[in-house]
Structures are given as structure tokens and as C-alpha cells.
Design a protein around this nucleic acid. Structure first.
Length: 350
DNA sequence: AAAGCGGGGAA
DNA sequence: TTCCCAGCTTT
């Protein structure tokens, strides 16, 4: 037990020493050398990156971060954007409640004249929870507070060889990390822990030979670090079926605004049927399809908890009923969430 | 406490 | 296929 705690105590210095050499270079990050030279992170860029990175890989978020910061270089400029501009710019990144909350948050922050500088103040803002508040407070404002994300949970569960109930393990991890945060470099400690999880202490086949914390790691000592974390299995996807209409006219495509809440809330969508459990729904024509609509195949798409198959129907000509919204084909392709972009691409290729 | 919420890459 | 990714919000 004593060696266990002794091992834990060396973690901050070992980790920061490793980070000084191996830190990932990321567009939203102020690296160890720049920090040492006195450069400070921009809270806006830290916040924007943290929101984009929620349950999202660095590779996926990277081009979106570049596009957003080019178009909206400050929280003030983002706050002044139209809702639709932001939702469309977010298209393809997923978890669209993040985009709605992003705009709400930007407007609150702009109205207040800047970001709150404490964890508690940050967490009161829309879209900022326990992890993100800690990360921004530590990275942008040097608050001595932990930032526990999936990477950190994995790293810590291995260091401590946490078996048993995962809920209890997460509490232990939160307490342990909180006690380890070094007051002089809280933000870099958070970044270092995440970098270690992303590059060394990976979910499968961790690179223990190059880990700066190897001698402090209980899971390494056991010989099977990949056994941790012992998370419960997730529920299986439900299967759903439906159909979708790609109606084009004069180089534009008919779209409709989806309800503000629920799946793909607030995004543009294509007219689609109810999604049911009956496979034959794929062959039933979507609402608004006329007599000249033509089936052009199926698309498959996986959401967090739904595995969806949609029959795609294409028709040329104006809508029979009341107008609706029309977007240029290219604009629609860029503004639609992935499931509808797939349908659009299928219809365009047939 | 549990469920809802996207999308894509890696193994 | 399965897992997981710099999680948060709502019920």
C-alpha cells in the first residue's frame, strides 16, 4: 500500500517531464515551450476546441476548428453569427446539441464581456459539464483543478488497477487526480495526462515500454494493462427503417428544418418517413413523393443507439404542396448531417 | 440512475 | 463486428 502511494506521488513530475518532450502540437494548444516563454492560451480557442472534442477524435475535429476560427476568430464574432450559419458549419461533426449550446454559450459570454475564470462559473454555461469546466479552468486560467475525460479514466484505472464496480472506480479516479494536480502547471498536467492516454496508454495494445509512468503502474505490474478500465458493456443498436426523398428542381434540393430537440435537432434534413421497426418501410414512399418518384437504392447509417436503413427516392420538379425550403445542391451537401448527405450522394449518382 | 444524442477510425 | 473518442443534458 505504501509503495502504491509512493508510486502515485512521482506521477506529476514524471508526466510533465515527458510532456515537455512529447506534447502533441495542436492548433488550439499553447505548447510547453511557448508557455515557458510566457505565452497564454486564448480562452475562446480552448473553449471551442473542448466543445468540439467532446466524444470526438482530434482528427475529426481538427478541420472544423480551423474553419470555425477562420470564420469566427473571437467569441464576440461567433455570438453575432446567425443560428443557421453555425448549425450548417457544424454539419458532419455530430452531437448537434453541442452546436446549439455553443451559440447560446457564446452569446452569454459575449454579453458578460468574457469567459468566467473559475471552474464553477464555467460549468454554469450551456454545454460545459464537469470535464470541460475543469479543462478550461486549468488550461486557460491556471485553476488548480482536475480534468477527467475518457483518456484520464483509462490511464488512472490502469495505474491503480481498478477492478470492481466502474461507478465506484470513477469516483476513486476523480479524487485521486484532484489530489495529484500540481499547482504550478495544472493545465499542462491535464494536457499531459490526455496525451499519454492518446499516444501511449491506448485502449488496445498500450505502449508500456515507452511509458514514463511504467514503474508506478499497477496494471503493468500485473502484466495485463489492457484489462482496464473494466467498463460495463453498452446497449445494442436498435434497427430502424424508413424512406427519404431527394426532390430536386432547378439545381436545388428540397430540405426541411428539423425540430429543435431530439435526433439531429435544429439541423436541415431531407423529407423522411417515420422510422419504424418494420423492414418494409424502406419500400414505402416518403411523404411528398409524387407519382414520378423513383427508388434509387438504400443507405445505412449508425447513430449512437439506432442502426438505420433508409430507402432513397429521387424526384425532379417542384413540390406539389406549399413551398418548403430549397438549398443549392452543394450548399445542401455541406449543410446536411451525414445521414442525409449519404442519401443526397446516392441520388446524385443514379 | 439511465437514456438520448453522431460520426468516423482503428483493430 | 466492437470499441471508443478532451461528455453533456434530460428524464
Amino acid at each position: 500500500m505504501e509503495s502504491f502511494h509512493k508510486g502515485l506521488r512521482i506521477i506529476p513530475s514524471r508526466l510533465l517531464g515527458w510532456y515537455d518532450v512529447h506534447a502533441r502540437e495542436l492548433p488550439w494548444r499553447t505548447g510547453p515551450q511557448a508557455r515557458a516563454a510566457g505565452e497564454r492560451p486564448d480562452p475562446y480557442r480552448v473553449w471551442l476546441s473542448e466543445i468540439m472534442l467532446q466524444q470526438t477524435t482530434v482528427a475529426h475535429a481538427r478541420p472544423y476548428f480551423a474553419a470555425f476560427t477562420a470564420r469566427w476568430p473571437s467569441v464576440k464574432s461567433l455570438a453575432a453569427a446567425e443560428d443557421d450559419e453555425v448549425m450548417s458549419a457544424w454539419a458532419g461533426l455530430g452531437y448537434y446539441a453541442r452546436a446549439r449550446n455553443l451559440l447560446k454559450c457564446a452569446r452569454q459570454v459575449a454579453a458578460a464581456g468574457g469567459f468566467p475564470r473559475t471552474r464553477a462559473g464555467l460549468q454554469a454555461l450551456p454545454g460545459i459539464g464537469p470535464y470541460t469546466s475543469g479543462a478550461i479552468a486549468a488550461i486557460a486560467f491556471d485553476e488548480c483543478t482536475p480534468a477527467v475525460d475518457g483518456n484520464v479514466e483509462r490511464v488512472m484505472s490502469r495505474l491503480m488497477a481498478l477492478g470492481g464496480e466502474w461507478k465506484a472506480g470513477k469516483l476513486t479516479i476523480a479524487e485521486t487526480v484532484a489530489a495529484l494536480v500540481p499547482p504550478d502547471r495544472p493545465g499542462e498536467f491535464a494536457e499531459a495526462l490526455m496525451d499519454l492516454g492518446a499516444t501511449i496508454c491506448t485502449p488496445k495494445r498500450p505502449d508500456c515500454a515507452n511509458c514514463p509512468l511504467q514503474e508506478a503502474c499497477a496494471a503493468y505490474a500485473e502484466g495485463q494493462p489492457e484489462r482496464y478500465p473494466a467498463k460495463p458493456k453498452r446497449a445494442q443498436h436498435q434497427r430502424r427503417f424508413g424512406s427519404v426523398l431527394v426532390r430536386t428542381f432547378r439545381g436545388r434540393v428540397l430540405v426541411e428544418r428539423r425540430p429543435e430537440t431530439g435526433l439531429l435537432g435544429g439541423m436541415w434534413g431531407l423529407p423522411t418517413s417515420e422510422w419504424t421497426g418494420a423492414a418494409q418501410a424502406v419500400r414505402e414512399w416518403p411523404p411528398g413523393a409524387g407519382s414520378r418518384a423513383a427508388p434509387c437504392g438504400e443507405i445505412q447509417h449508425v447513430f449512437t443507439h439506432i442502426r438505420l436503413t433508409l430507402g432513397v427516392y429521387r424526384e425532379e420538379g417542384p413540390a406539389a404542396g406549399a413551398g418548403g425550403d430549397w438549398l443549392g445542391i452543394d450548399e445542401a451537401r455541406a449543410s446536411l448531417p451525414s445521414v442525409f448527405r449519404k442519401a443526397l450522394d446516392l441520388a446524385a449518382g443514379t
